[in-house]
């Protein structure tokens, strides 16, 4: 097992190298430069000034050399300095140690995604299991319709409706942001309540769209399992239906979910741009979108690299999880 993991980890290195190489060249293929924000359509800039700026950013060098410079730094886990006018280190933009934990971009996105994933699992698994056991019933049809409506609803539209309803009409919940104006003056309990209130709508909206995938997955996985012989045997032995389903069938039906969990790890740090913009949540999606628009190469590469590492690790974790839980795979 240990040797297997080590082998997998070593295999990750060339893969990661390939990913960064491709990403680096593809992002440089897009027209535009990070200096554009200062120079585009600015009549006060001369060609010499533009060249000077490009030199300051190291953009005058051939692209292979730029990649080499980047690669040499990344080996020491140095993500470099952002090309945007603030010139902050990339890592500080993602994980700003000068800010409290709760205000760091990576944490904000991670927290919302974990919460919404928790809600998705909490709701989707029971829906999936029960619609499998009541296949083709009215209940199955209603829940299926419900989760697909969630899947099909545009997040920005739902978000705006909920904001109008809960934020303005009822005035129960805040509309956007992560905390209120008077946050600093609140008690500890008040502070956590304030943050919770701000999270309700975003978490609901992001979970609502994700129900369909998991619940359908759970449903088909459960359907497959309850047609197995051992389930028939268990029923023939006269075990209660509930214990057949929840004790015997359920555990096996959960196995594919482990893969899904592993694959969703990289998703935990990637935020959705539309969703973060509409709720004014300063998360990773916004950061990545802005960095791409500004052609902020170091920041784009930083986020892509972290994403790539997490994807590879997620795959590995999913495989390990499988081995731990499923003896059939361990035997191979």
């Amino acid at each position: 097992m240990v040797s297997y993991i080590i082998k997998r980890l070593l295999e990750m290195i060339p893969t990661l190298f390939g990913i960064t190489l491709l990403s680096f060249f593809i992002i440089h293929l897009a027209p535009g430069k990070p200096t554009d924000v200062l120079t585009e359509m600015n009549p006060k800039i001369t060609p010499e000034a533009r060249e000077r700026l490009e030199k300051l950013y190291g953009l005058d060098k051939p692209i292979v050399e730029q990649y080499w410079v980047w690669l040499k730094r990344i080996v020491y886990l140095d993500f470099g300095v952002s090309f945007s006018t603030d010139r902050r280190p990339v890592i500080e933009k993602i994980w700003d140690t000068k800010q409290p934990f709760m205000e760091r971009r990576l944490f904000i996105t991670f927290m919302i995604n974990v919460l919404s994933m928790f809600v998705i699992f909490l709701v989707a698994i029971p829906i999936g299991v029960s619609s499998a056991t009541h296949q083709y019933s009215l209940y199955d049809k209603i829940t299926t319709t419900f989760v697909f409506v969630g899947f099909a609803t545009p997040a920005f539209w739902l978000a705006l409706l909920l904001m109008i309803f809960f934020g303005i009409y009822l005035d129960w919940l805040p509309i956007s942001g992560l905390k209120s104006m008077d946050y600093e003056s609140l008690s500890l309990f008040g502070k956590s309540w304030d943050r919770t209130r701000h999270l309700i709508l975003p978490v609901f909206v992001s979970a609502f769209g994700g129900l369909a995938g998991l619940s359908r997955f759970m449903r088909s996985s459960m359907l497959e399992v309850i047609r197995q012989d051992y389930v028939t045997v268990a029923r023939a032995k006269g075990i209660y239906e509930s214990s057949v389903i929840y004790k015997h069938a359920f555990r096996n039906a959960l196995l594919p979910i482990i893969t899904l969990l592993g694959l969703s790890i990289p998703g935990l740090i990637g935020g959705s741009v539309i969703f973060e913009n509409i709720f004014s949540i300063p998360g990773m999606g916004q950061l990545f979108y802005m960095s791409v628009m500004m052609r902020d190469y170091p920041l784009v590469m930083g986020i892509l690299t972290i994403g790539a590492i997490l994807t590879l690790l997620g795959n590995l974790l999913a495989d390990i999880g499988y081995m731990v839980t499923d003896p059939r795979i361990r035997a191979q």
Partner: peptide, 20 residues
């Protein structure tokens, strides 16, 4: 003077109505 960043104009208009 507080300068709040709200990237979405529709949200900003709702915040205006809600007093944000």
């Amino acid at each position: 003077y507080v300068y709040r960043f709200i990237p979405d104009p529709a949200t900003m208009f709702l915040e205006l109505q809600a007093g944000g």
